[in-house]
Design a protein around this nucleic acid. Structure first.
Length: 611
RNA sequence: GCGAGUGUAGCUCAGCCUGGUAGAGCGUCACCUUGCCAAGGUGAAUGUCGAGGGUUCGAAUCCCUUCACUCGCUCCA
């Protein structure tokens, strides 16, 4: 649980967001709708600036990345190929006793990990039922370990049904799973065998499907034939359009395709303000690279990830590890570049056992939110999993042909080819073993894959591998809001202290760059001059003109909006002191310092700071 | 989806227990006054008390339902 103090901070941020127009609850006048949020005038600008910064860095400032903007609704088979239809429809059950929510398909994997189940397994080795020992356990330790297990709640009745089962003429010994089910069931005849809650042994509700994808139908008539889904991520469109982009963008591997846009997930529990929303926006890059064997054939060797190779410009001998590190580094630089405080975000290298089955490595970029340290972006090395899946499901080849690779392969000596193949087979064998194949089967399958794979390589063909930096825009906005939030307490001459909020956004992403204020509103000359300055700057940056209230109040308002600069037009601007004619005061949000700047120098001074 | 808590003006909250029909501070707006960090004065607007239903002569207050938010279970861009 997060500290109370941190919850207070979060509440302050939420409150400011509403007060100043960063974020509103969606459909608020109708009571709101869970998991959906709107951006107000300042939030919309902030979000645009962040997305623009990403697009500029990832697409415009590079030669090797192309943009894509795909539809939200795509062919439903895309989600079968990606695995989302299967993995996004988890059957869930709730324990009627301890109220915990469990994935029904994981219950039998979880049960043996719990102490109560282990104890029963010990009492009844290999399903050999020892009723007296079970009874003793139920009345003793069992009360602690599995308070809600039928055996513990009502031992005699539960055991009597088990005895019926065991003593039936010609009955085989129950499996361990069956044993657990009997021990979890009080009245077999009325309820059938129950599945115990892994945590407390209690009764689970019938599994209900939790479909995480928003479902709809294309065409006016709803039927099973025209089911479609709102995309749960933007990445798949990139894979689905890989061939088109590759052929038309005049790009050769390594190159990337970037996309940003809305994605939708029917989250079980939207939580933490905008952090987990049901409609959210992603910025994703799929960077396609040659498989290491192709790199080795072309460059002679694959650069080691342990040398700091990734810190420089991309090189021909980079394999997936170096490319992966390179992108982690690039993404960290991006976050620094938009002003995220470096010691409030960190990179986390997932441990091998945490990786999804298709990932070779994954780095999370985590931000220290007031409610806890949470993920902003994941940078995964996904091998050729995605393109291969689409090749399988669509029947369309997803590979590329590389003339140079074919030529280079022809010149490789046999020993090199053999050692590369041996290494490939070792890796694949390990992967098949992990999936549960026996040793002979794993070796056989690995050999078969190696034959297909190396035959293609020799012809210059391969399916590109991919590095995927995938970021959540709304999470980043929330991180930037939390990062920028600061309070300034001032005490006046009367000893009255007052706390004001200053949003310290980096000028590059600040919603408004400059506030423009005539010192006094009732002096037409000041107002006219201020509007002149406004019109001078407006074509180049977002400005906000304000003549309402006292000057200090206007500064404070802009501090809350996070406007980095304030310009005040006073009587000196009009020439009260001739030497100050056509100069204004430039106020810095963070230092509150004011400097005198000539109007003609403003653009040159401000533009570099806000770009 | 389940459990616990919360919902009153733009914001922060009082009033609810012990029904009699809504208040404070801040903010907002207008005017006056203004010489640089939420200054002062005068005036004004704003709530079907989250929504729906019930009990009652009468409901912000008691009861039920529902929606949203917060915290857990779950999830991870």
């Amino acid at each position: 649980m997060s500290e109370p103090k941190e919850n207070v901070l979060m509440e302050k941020i939420v409150s400011l967001c509403k007060r100043r127009g960063f974020v509103f609850q969606s459909s608020e006048i109708y009571g709101g709708i869970n998991g959906f949020w709107d951006y107000g005038q300042l939030g919309a600008e902030l979000k645009r600036n962040v997305k623009d910064a990403w697009w500029r860095t990832i697409v415009h400032h590079r030669d090797d990345v192309a943009g894509l903007e795909a539809t939200i609704i795509m062919h439903p088979k895309i989600w079968e190929a990606s695995g989302h239809v299967a993995t996004f429809a988890d059957p869930m059950s709730t324990c009627k006793h301890c109220k915990k929510l469990v994935r029904f398909d994981q219950v039998w994997e979880m049960i043996p990990e719990n102490a109560w189940a282990q104890a029963i397994a010990e009492i009844c080795p290999d399903g050999l039922v020892e009723s007296p020992a079970l009874l003793a356990w139920a009345k003793g330790k069992g009360k602690h370990l599995a308070p809600n297990l039928a055996l513990v709640r009502n031992p005699e009745v539960t055991l009597s049904f088990l005895a019926e089962r065991v003593n039936a003429p010609g009955a085989a010994r129950p499996t361990v799973k069956e044993l657990y089910q009997y021990l979890a069931t009080e009245q077999v005849n009325t309820t059938g065998l129950q599945t115990p809650c892994p945590h407390c042994g209690g009764e689970l509700t019938a599994p209900r499907p939790f479909n995480l994808m928003f479902k709809s139908h294309y065409g006016p008539v709803e039927s099973d034939d025209n089911v479609c889904y709102l995309r749960p991520e933007t990445a798949q469109a990139i894979f689905a359009q890989f061939k088109n982009v590759h052929e038309t963008a005049r790009q050769k591997v390594p190159f990337g395709v970037a996309q940003m846009g809305k994605a939708f997930r029917n989250e079980v529990t939207p939580r933490n303000f905008t952090f987990r929303s049901r409609e959210f926006e992603q910025m994703e890059l799929e960077f396609f690279i040659k498989p290491d064997e192709a790199v080795e054939a072309l460059a002679g060797s694959v650069a080691k990830a342990s040398d700091n190779a990734w810190q420089g410009e991309p090189q021909a001998d980079w394999g997936w590890e170096v490319w992966h590190k390179y992108w982690v580094e690039q993404r960290i630089r991006f976050y620094e570049g938009i002003g995220l405080t470096r010691d409030r975000f960190e990179e986390y290298w997932q441990k091998p056992e945490e990786l999804a089955h298709y990932a070779r490595a994954c780095v999370d970029i985590l931000y220290k939110f007031p409610f806890g340290t949470q993920e902003l972006e994941g940078i995964a090395a996904r091998g050729d999993f995605d393109l291969s899946q689409h090749e399988k499901h669509s029947g369309k080849p997803m590979g590329v042909f590389d003339e140079e690779l074919r030529a280079a392969w022809g010149k490789l000596d046999e020993a090199k080819k053999a050692s590369m193949r041996a290494k490939f087979v070792t890796g694949k064998t390990a992967a098949f073993l992990k999936k549960g194949a026996d040793e002979a089967e794993a070796a056989k399958q690995a050999e078969a894959e190696a034959t297909v794979y190396f035959d293609k390589l020799a012809k210059g063909q391969y399916i590109p591998h991919v590095i995927e930096p995938s970021a959540g825009v709304d999470r980043l906005i929330l991180a930037l809001l939390a990062d920028a939030y600061s309070e300034l307490t001032t005490t006046d001459e009367k000893g009255k202290s007052e706390t004001r909020v200053v949003m310290r956004f980096h000028p590059r992403i600040a919603p408004v760059k400059v506030g423009i204020f005539p010192l006094l509103k009732n002096k037409p000359e000041l107002v006219a001059k201020a509007k002149e300055v406004r019109d001078l700057l407006r074509p180049h940056m977002t400005v906000f003109y304000d003549d309402g209230g006292a000057i200090g109040r206007r500064y404070a308002r802009q501090d809350e909006a996070g406007t980095p600069f304030g310009l005040t037009i006073d009587f000196d601007t009009l020439g009260e002191k001739p030497e100050l004619l056509d100069t204004v005061t430039l106020r810095d949000r963070d230092t509150q310092q004011q400097t005198r700047v000539a109007i003609k120098d403003l653009l040159g001074l401000l533009l570099p700071k806000v770009r």
